[in-house]
């Protein structure tokens, strides 16, 4: 069973170029200017094919700007590909950012509702999970305080606690685990292991070698928008480290 199928997908971003010639010159040579701007888009992903099986955990590694986050954003459906198709089978929880939509004037409890509904739960589903979310976060004592009084680690804990209660079938994780104290991190990893046992598909973007080794059964190394290598995590990490 395939969870995610990425088929010959390319994504280019228009470069923001200044009109180097000045307005008048640019207007006089408009077709030329347009051609130049069109000719030099930034190719974030170039003809990528990738299949992720149901229940598989895939780690995406690569240098900054190699297209990792673009790939996750495409799978999450927040941007659309230039060419190619993406199929996603199952409920996606895109953890591209913890606590998306959090408002600092609202209390922890109010933010759980806001974030949960934005992430796709109904208000009733959030209410049913409230107790579990609060217990997981360990922030009972702070729940009725505005989160501007929280430390950044506490905010991240709250966000992660909502995220792991979304009952996802596919979890997209973008470098968000480096938060919270050691104790909470251990709790996050336990939860991810639990997701794996339950057969949740996980795609994780990370710079942390240990995360890939611990969690993933396959690593994909992106370089300049192309897949440079993929396969057994140790081998791919080794090759990436040498590059």
């Amino acid at each position: 069973m395939t969870a995610i199928r990425i088929d010959h997908v390319s994504k280019a971003y228009a470069r923001h170029r200044h009109l180097t010639r000045g307005v008048k010159e640019s207007l006089l040579h408009l077709p030329d200017v347009i051609r130049r701007v069109r000719a030099e888009p930034f190719r974030a992903l170039d003809n990528i094919c990738l299949e992720v099986r149901k229940g598989e955990a895939v780690g995406i590694i690569g240098a900054n700007g190699s297209g990792k986050s673009t790939m996750l954003a495409l799978i999450a459906g927040v941007i659309e590909p230039e060419a190619g198709t993406i199929e996603v089978h199952g409920r996606v929880a895109p953890l591209l950012e913890l606590g998306a939509g959090f408002h600092y004037e609202l209390t922890g409890r109010e933010n759980i509702v806001l974030n949960g509904v934005l992430m796709g739960l109904t208000r009733r589903e959030v209410a049913e999970r409230m107790e579990a979310i609060v217990a997981f976060s360990g922030l009972e004592a702070w729940l009725n305080e505005p989160i501007r009084t929280y430390s950044s680690g506490m905010v991240a804990r709250l966000g992660f606690s909502v995220a792991v209660h979304l009952d996802p079938e596919i979890l997209l994780v973008d470098e968000i685990l480096a938060v919270g104290d050691a104790h909470f991190q251990a709790k996050c990893y336990d939860r991810l292991d639990e997701f794996r046992r339950q057969g949740v598909t996980i795609v994780i973007v990370t710079h942390a070698r240990a995360e890939v080794q611990r969690l993933c059964e396959r690593a994909v190394w992106l370089d300049g928008g192309k897949i440079a290598m993929q396969g057994e995590p140790e081998a791919v990490l080794e090759a990436y480290a040498k590059s």
Binding site: G77, V88, V92, A93, L114, L121, R123, E125
Partner: peptide, 21 residues
Amino acid sequence: ALAIASVTRPRLSYIADLILV
């Protein structure tokens, strides 16, 4: 509800919840 992230169109009751929140 979470299916909105992939394929199906969100239900009206979910949209109403979202707007309310």
